[in-house]
Design a binder for these strands. Sequence first.
DNA 1: CGTTAGTTTGACGCGATTCAACCTTCGTGG
DNA 2: CCACGAAGGTTGAATCGCGTCAAACTAACG
Lengths: 267, 267
Amino acid sequence: MVKLDETAATVAVSPLVRRLGSQITLSAEECAALEQLQARRAVLHEGQFLVRDGELLTAAFILCAGAAIRYRITMAGRRQILGISLPGDAIGLQVNFQSTAIADVAALCETEVALIEPERILDLYRHHPVLAAGIDWLTVYNFNILSEHNVSLGARPARERVLHFLLELWSRLAQIGVARPDGFDLPLTQRQIADAMGLSVVHTNKTLKRLAGEGLLELCRRVVRFPDLQAAMAAADFDPRFLQQFRPARNWRSGAGGQVRRFNEYV
Amino acid sequence: MVKLDETAATVAVSPLVRRLGSQITLSAEECAALEQLQARRAVLHEGQFLVRDGELLTAAFILCAGAAIRYRITMAGRRQILGISLPGDAIGLQVNFQSTAIADVAALCETEVALIEPERILDLYRHHPVLAAGIDWLTVYNFNILSEHNVSLGARPARERVLHFLLELWSRLAQIGVARPDGFDLPLTQRQIADAMGLSVVHTNKTLKRLAGEGLLELCRRVVRFPDLQAAMAAADFDPRFLQQFRPARNWRSGAGGQVRRFNEYV
DNA sequence: CGTTAGTTTGACGCGATTCAACCTTCGTGG
DNA sequence: CCACGAAGGTTGAATCGCGTCAAACTAACG
């Protein structure tokens, strides 16, 4: 199943560059460095593992296309999905420390990743302070998402929890320009939503139906639409601040200036 | 209530140095740099805030003594405690990005912190790569803890959840040398445990009593003891890997060598 | 010695799980 | 082209873990 990529004629901008360049201006050199960082690519299909629990981490990844889940299996056999990795996300940045993975990471669909040796991250740190800050920010970003999941799991009932989660995914996809203004294509099954939200599949389904009944959500064949975004965000206690974008404010850009590119999408 | 600190006669080693130096050897120079980083101190008493939700972050903290909780309040008025900061933990390292706090951080008791301006972190990055790695590791460490809380909140019943949490605290305190071989002093009320575990106070209390009845836990006046550590860890599905210590394995230490100090505690 | 914060216990109800069945969609091979 | 199986989605009924309400008890502190 080979498809011609019509858009390939235009310069392909990687999701990572999109993200880091959405709020600040990256020099052409910085863009190039980021693209080059992602030069070594690999493609995985659905179900394949990027990382196995217990194995020694030797490289980090940047997800370029597709989606992946990070999860752990408890003694009792339950799966807890800790996070969804979307294009432009980094996976396993902690490679810097000789460490073993403490979670599985698996592709949700045909997924393309860039393999990054730790040394190359260090090089980036040395030569491109702004990009180093960008990498750090990726970590903070994921930390904030994880924190918000904690709030959902610990302190929000199923209805808000599920809606909040879908709004988060929409928001993140919108930030990299692959969502519609009022919805997105969901890369997850209901079982996966359930395992991320700490709910049973049955109750997850009933919750989704209920949200649909309330006019807060339409979900049909893994296509999500929010008929009333304002209402949905209010109902889910959704505070977009936790997804704040990369915006280093300090005097890190000494006199770089240079040629400049800026990317932006709604949200 | 002034107490003479008998141990002050010996050189005071900050918890941060203890932690970073527990698995690798730090040169005297590196130790000094770390201590100097924590030169600007402040003391807060119980209930005072290190950080308020919504306010602009201007400095990071390293907790030197005492304890603090990071938490968020939901729309519905529930409090979710996202993490407990113990001596040697960093708070607000994301200062690098002009960003507002998205959680409150409050002292649990008389607590001493070091104030760290972002520039000084950058200096450390420039001049002491090993210590920079150490700071990065602090972030990873906290990320792992947060991930494990996610697993608990989403996929473990109250009994395992509470026991796991207490074992985690014991483990972390043991790593910095302020726990007993079979227990520790708990800096939390049951209401705080409840808010961290996403449980009601009532059910938390019943769960603690049940664990005591099973001989897995003794909790009296905020003193925790594990009569049978092995049994407790098994019952709680506690896998200590997620608290792995700082151990950079790469060739980052070129030819530093120098005078060397090593700290270690059980665990 | 009174006040307040924290802990403990019982009764009751709801939210979420589990079990069980059925339905839909889709890919595969006859 | 249809038959089939597998994976995902949908729905109802029974059950249980945990939340809520309410009240008493204990310890710490001024």
